[in-house]
Computed example of a mutant assay.
Amino acid sequence: MGIEDKAENKAQDASGTAKEKVGQAVGNDDLKNEGKADQVSAAFKDGAEKVKDAARNIGDKFTK
C-alpha cells in the first residue's frame, strides 16, 4: 500500500468520524450517516489495498 493511499484512507476515516459526531451532536441524521459511509468507504479501500499488497508479496516469492 502506498503511503499516499494510506494517508488518504486515514484522512477519509477521520473526516467521517468527525461528520458522524457533529451530525449526532446537532441531530442531523444525514450528516451522521454520511460520516458513517465515509468510514466504511475508507475501511473498504484499506482492505482492498491490503489484498493487493498480499497478492504482490505472493507474486514476488514466486519470481525470486
Score class of each variant (00 low, 15 high):
residue 55 A to Q: 15
residue 38 D to I: 01
residue 11 A to G: 00
residue 43 A to T: 08
residue 9 N to M: 03
residue 32 K to V: 07
residue 49 E to S: 04
residue 23 G to V: 02
residue 54 A to D: 02
residue 39 Q to W: 07
residue 27 G to C: 08
residue 9 N to I: 00
residue 64 K to Q: 08
residue 1 M to K: 07
residue 48 A to S: 08
residue 5 D to K: 10
residue 33 N to G: 00
residue 15 S to D: 13
residue 37 A to V: 07
residue 62 F to S: 14
residue 7 A to W: 11
residue 57 N to F: 05
residue 41 S to L: 14
residue 56 R to Q: 08
residue 8 E to M: 14
residue 33 N to P: 02
residue 33 N to H: 03
residue 43 A to M: 09
residue 53 D to V: 03
residue 49 E to N: 11
residue 47 G to V: 04
residue 36 K to Q: 12
residue 64 K to G: 07
residue 55 A to N: 09
residue 32 K to L: 00
residue 7 A to G: 13
residue 28 N to A: 06
residue 50 K to Q: 06
residue 44 F to Y: 08
residue 44 F to H: 05
residue 55 A to K: 09
residue 54 A to S: 07
residue 52 K to G: 04
residue 47 G to K: 04
residue 53 D to K: 01
residue 44 F to E: 13
residue 30 D to I: 01
residue 13 D to V: 12
residue 9 N to W: 07
residue 61 K to Q: 08
residue 25 A to D: 12
residue 59 G to T: 03
residue 22 V to E: 06
residue 56 R to E: 14
residue 38 D to T: 07
residue 7 A to Y: 13
residue 25 A to N: 03
residue 26 V to Q: 05
residue 40 V to A: 10
residue 6 K to G: 08
residue 1 M to S: 06
residue 22 V to L: 12
residue 40 V to T: 06
residue 56 R to L: 15
residue 45 K to E: 06
residue 59 G to N: 01
residue 17 T to C: 13
residue 54 A to R: 08
residue 2 G to T: 14
residue 52 K to N: 00
residue 54 A to Y: 04
residue 20 E to Q: 10
residue 59 G to Q: 01
residue 42 A to G: 02
residue 59 G to V: 00
residue 26 V to M: 01
residue 5 D to P: 03
residue 54 A to Q: 13
residue 56 R to V: 14
residue 52 K to P: 00
residue 11 A to S: 01
residue 10 K to S: 10
residue 40 V to N: 15
residue 18 A to D: 14
residue 58 I to S: 07
residue 20 E to P: 10
residue 49 E to F: 12
residue 6 K to F: 00
residue 33 N to R: 07
